[in-house]
Amino acid sequence: MSSLRETPDVLRYTAFSDDPEGGNPAGIVLDATGLRDEEMLAIAAEVGYSESAFLTAPSGGAAGSGASDAGRAYSVRYFSPKMEVPFCGHATVATAVALGERIGPGDLVFTTRAGIVPVTVTREGGALRATLTSVEPHIEEVSADDLAEALAALDWPAGDLDPALPPRIAFAGARHLVLAAASRERLANLAYDFARLEALMHRLDLVTLELVWRASPEVFHVRAPFPVGGVVEDPATGAAAAAFGAYARELGLVPEATVLTLHQGEDMGRPGVLTVELRADDRRIRVSGTGTRIPA
């Protein structure tokens, strides 16, 4: 596939911001019927964003058509420029906003490689907002050797970690290594060994690192290196935000029912805001944000 002119239309939306210059951009193909894996990967590579979403209708109808919109259910696959990922939160939010513009606010159901992801689109003032509900999350320990290798790849001294937020691998649709910086300055200074970190992440089946700094009990600043996807850093990462919500709750860092605010992308010049909701009666994590189309 030599050119996007030979592919279905590719929309470009940003997620977790209502400013096209903020948040995390995603490519969206509303009807990927008939596209082969290698074609979707080629489209994602040519678009060049951290991920692109490809929709088909589970019933076999064309995604985005009037018939399948009645059910508001879609199969969704996500590709970075280098690989397919099981789940992508920002592309989910961007896709839901794009659908909301076409078929109106309401409930959607996305069938992903990670599982079923319900999404609700609402209108707040003049903006659309999408809220995804993650699959069942979990966290696990990271070995001392793997932690040491991650810190070496980042060039972070162990003393720069916040001891109140211990390292863990967290999952809410994809696997992320959570590391907490002791200072905002440590988080802002991100210059890592791309190949070394990529190798470790492939070995541990990680999609991103979730690097965090706690600004207040419910407010965090985050960054997400994404070398396995072929990009240095993801500007706003919904899947990692969901995983982090599970991490914070499982370690007792926040109440079982709370709302967290994550600021991401500021150090890249693409600020975005991710809202993470935890509920006492549901272990799944809800991540929400605005989105908007990126002008051609």
Rank of each mutant, 00 (worst) to 15 (best):
E51N: 12
E51W: 12
S52E: 01
A53D: 06
F54D: 02
L55H: 14
L55S: 14
A57Q: 12
P58N: 08
P58Q: 10
S59E: 14
A63Y: 08
A63R: 09
G64D: 04
G64P: 05
S68G: 09
R72Y: 01
A73E: 15
A73L: 08
Y74N: 05
S75W: 06
V76L: 12
V76H: 05
R77H: 10
Y78T: 10
F79E: 06
F79Y: 15
S80R: 07
P81L: 05
K82H: 09
M83E: 12
E84D: 12
V85F: 05
P86S: 12
P86A: 11
P86V: 06
C88Y: 00
C88L: 05
G89M: 04
A91L: 03
A91W: 08
A91F: 06
V93L: 14
A94W: 00
A94H: 03
A96T: 14
G100A: 01
E101M: 11
R102K: 15
I103F: 10
I103L: 04
P105F: 03
P105Y: 06
P105I: 02
G106K: 06
D107H: 13
L108I: 02
L108K: 00
V109L: 15
T111Q: 14
T111N: 14
T112G: 01
I116Q: 13
I116R: 15
V117E: 03
V117P: 05
V117H: 06
P118T: 07
V121E: 08
T122S: 15
T122Q: 14
R123W: 11
E124H: 10
E124G: 05
G125V: 07
G125K: 05
G125I: 07
G126V: 08
A127E: 13
A127K: 14
A130Q: 08
T131I: 01
L132E: 11
T133M: 00
V135T: 11
P137Y: 00
H138N: 08
I139D: 07
E141I: 04
E141W: 05
V142M: 00
V142E: 01
V142C: 04
S143G: 14
S143P: 13
D146H: 13
L147G: 08
L147D: 01
L147K: 07
A148F: 11
L151A: 02
A153V: 07
L154F: 10
W156I: 04
W156P: 02
P157C: 02
G159H: 02
L161N: 01
L161P: 01
L161R: 01
P163I: 04
A164S: 13
L165N: 03
L165M: 11
P166Q: 12
P166D: 07
P166V: 10
R168P: 07
R168L: 04
I169E: 00
A170K: 13
A170Y: 09
F171W: 15
A174Y: 03
H176T: 02
H176P: 00
L177H: 04
L177V: 03
V178M: 11
L179G: 11
L179T: 08
A180E: 04
A180P: 07
A181Y: 00
A181V: 00
A181L: 01
A182L: 03
A182V: 09
S183I: 01
S183G: 04
R184P: 06
R186E: 13
R186K: 15
L187I: 12
L187E: 10
A188G: 15
